[in-house]
Write a protein that binds this DNA or RNA. Structure first.
Lengths: 183, 183
DNA sequence: GTCACTCTATACGCACCCGTATGGACGAGG
DNA sequence: CCTCGTCCATACGGGTGCGTATAGAGTGAC
């Protein structure tokens, strides 16, 4: 057994970095190789083709961005409002992961297979949020509206570039979130 | 003066169509030419290069997606809540225009010059929404939070793919909007 | 009919990228 | 020391796209 010099995971990580920076079109094998300091020779030893890499990139995105985040929020206890705030904090805490998430969302708009994965992930997250809002909010329509507003603000705030006078973007998001948590 | 066969505007329109469908990387001159039934020969008579086309595409996007929408909402009268609803309806009414808007938002995440244009546009729309929410909502923080929620839901809802049980996405958005319009 | 103007076709050089083929390099196990 | 497994470098063919150069077509003005 020889040692592993540039394992699959390096290619996947570098691919996710490229995806975050420039979208799926920026995931070019020769560019990744340059970034890793090798040539593409080894890439085709690990992967069948570019599509296989993209697939595995989406696998790891699903795992670390969705499953692990929810697990960590659940693991630390607190009431529903505390978990809600922690969910938002955690999801925005890793800039690199966040940018991958946003890139996947745009990608999903034109690739049905990506959209199917995103649907699975978004449904998981929404289901989890419903349980949190439902803990202190009896009306079902209201729960759905609050989930929608909270989730779409989490996503949409990164796709808009407005100023808010003296307030920072984070201030306004916190303000809005507090509004959604109200009785 | 000879007649105009494939004027600048054809290239810009076709470019916007490509942008809506596949992002800025999909705006390829030879592909646009094929779509227009000509070769790229004439393109370089109208434009210096690909960048010049992208620039003019953004010009027209700014004009028709922001200025004209606000003008039309204002032109038809009604109270603040009616205008708010019309603003949402109008902005979503033209699928093609909407998809350009979303593509520009993703594009802005990696191109500072695009981000600057988007900032200008988003500030205009936010300023207008502030005036509408401010008409029936006295607290300034509350106005800002509602604007943020409304705008980011408008944007974010198109970047998420969750199901809502028996409800349709449009139902949930309407539900959420009604919540934001409440006294 | 001629001219001027507005495109349009075609061909070229360059660069980038994909996927394949092939011959290694390099260290662990025997 | 030799072999095997794990990569890596290099070269190739094919495809696509950009921007340039150049010759020409089609139409209105005169």
């Amino acid at each position: 057994m020889a040692p592993i010099r540039t394992p699959r995971s390096s290619w996947i990580d570098e691919g996710l970095r490229a995806l975050a920076g420039g979208g799926p079109d920026a995931v070019r094998i020769e560019a990744l190789a340059r970034a890793l300091g090798v040539t593409k020779g080894g890439f085709y030893w690990h992967f069948d083709d570019r599509g296989a890499l993209l697939d595995e990139m989406l696998d790891t995105w699903e795992r670390v961005s969705i499953d692990e985040v929810i697990d960590r929020v659940e693991g630390e206890g607190g009431d529903a409002r505390a978990r809600l705030r922690r969910l938002f904090a955690l999801a925005s805490s890793t800039p690199e992961l966040l940018r991958v998430d946003l890139a996947v969302r745009d990608w999903a708009r034109r690739e049905p297979t990506v959209a199917r994965r995103l649907r699975r992930g978004d449904n998981r997250r929404m289901e989890y949020m419903r349980s949190l809002f439902g803990a202190f909010c009896p009306d079902e329509d209201d729960v759905e509206a609050r989930c929608m507003l909270a989730f779409s603000m989490f996503v949409g705030s990164h796709f808009m570039v407005a100023d808010h006078g003296a307030r920072s973007r984070a201030d306004v998001v916190a303000l809005a979130l507090r509004r959604l948590e109200a009785e």
